[in-house]
C-alpha cells in the first residue's frame, strides 16, 4: 500500500471532523445498519489515505469523498447480497434503527435515486450543486430526482 498526500495529523483531523456526519448519513441511505454505514465511511477515508489524488478546492474534495463513500457503500451492499440477504427487503421489513417509513423507502430506492433524494431533501443541495458533487449533468440529476420521488410514492403506496 502506498500513501498519498493526506497523511498529516492535521489533515486527518480536519477531514474526518468535517465530513464524517454528512458521509455517514449518505452511506446509511444505501445500507441497512449504522455499523455498515460506519464501515463504508471508514473505507472511503482509508481510500483517500492511499490515493494519490489532489483536489483543486474544497468542493472537489467533498465531491470525491461523496462518490467514494457511495462506491464503498455499494460494495458492502453487494457483499451482503452475495450472502443471500436482500437489503431492500431487510430495509423495508426490519430497519429498527429508523422508525420512519419514508427513510426506509429511500433506503429501498436504487442508488442513483436515493443519493439525489437524500442530498436534496436532507443536505439541501440544489440540482446544480448535486450535478457538480456527483459529476453528472444537471438535467440528469433533475430526472433522477423526479423519478426518485415517483418511486417513493409507489413504494409508500404499496406498503
Amino acid at each position: 500500500m502506498d500513501l498519498g498526500p493526506f497523511t498529516s495529523d492535521e489533515t486527518i483531523s480536519r477531514i474526518v471532523g468535517e465530513y464524517s456526519d454528512m458521509l455517514l448519513r449518505l452511506a446509511y441511505t444505501r445500507l441497512s445498519s449504522v455499523s455498515d454505514a460506519e464501515d463504508a465511511v471508514q473505507e472511503a477515508f482509508l481510500q483517500l489515505l492511499t490515493s494519490r489524488v489532489s483536489f483543486r478546492d474544497a468542493g472537489h474534495e467533498k465531491a470525491w469523498l461523496i462518490r467514494t463513500t457511495l462506491h464503498r457503500a455499494s460494495d458492502i451492499r453487494r457483499r451482503a447480497e452475495g450472502r443471500n440477504v436482500s437489503l431492500e427487503e431487510a430495509a423495508l421489513a426490519a430497519a429498527p434503527e429508523t422508525g420512519s417509513e419514508l427513510l426506509q423507502a429511500v433506503q429501498a430506492l436504487p442508488e442513483k435515486y436515493s443519493a439525489v433524494i437524500h442530498l436534496h431533501y436532507y443536505e439541501g443541495y440544489s440540482i446544480k450543486e448535486m450535478g457538480k458533487l456527483l459529476g453528472l449533468p444537471a438535467a440528469t440529476v433533475g430526472t433522477r430526482l423526479a423519478r426518485g420521488r415517483e418511486r417513493l410514492r409507489q413504494i409508500l403506496k404499496e406498503e
Partner: peptide, 20 residues
C-alpha cells in the same frame, strides 16, 4: 411527502459517538 419526518429520522440514527 413528509420531508421533515425524514430529516428527523436521519437525525435520530444511532451512529457511534466515538466514530470520529
Amino acid at each position: 411527502m413528509k420531508w421533515e419526518e425524514y430529516r428527523n429520522a436521519v437525525d435520530r440514527l444511532p451512529f457511534s459517538a466515538d466514530f470520529q
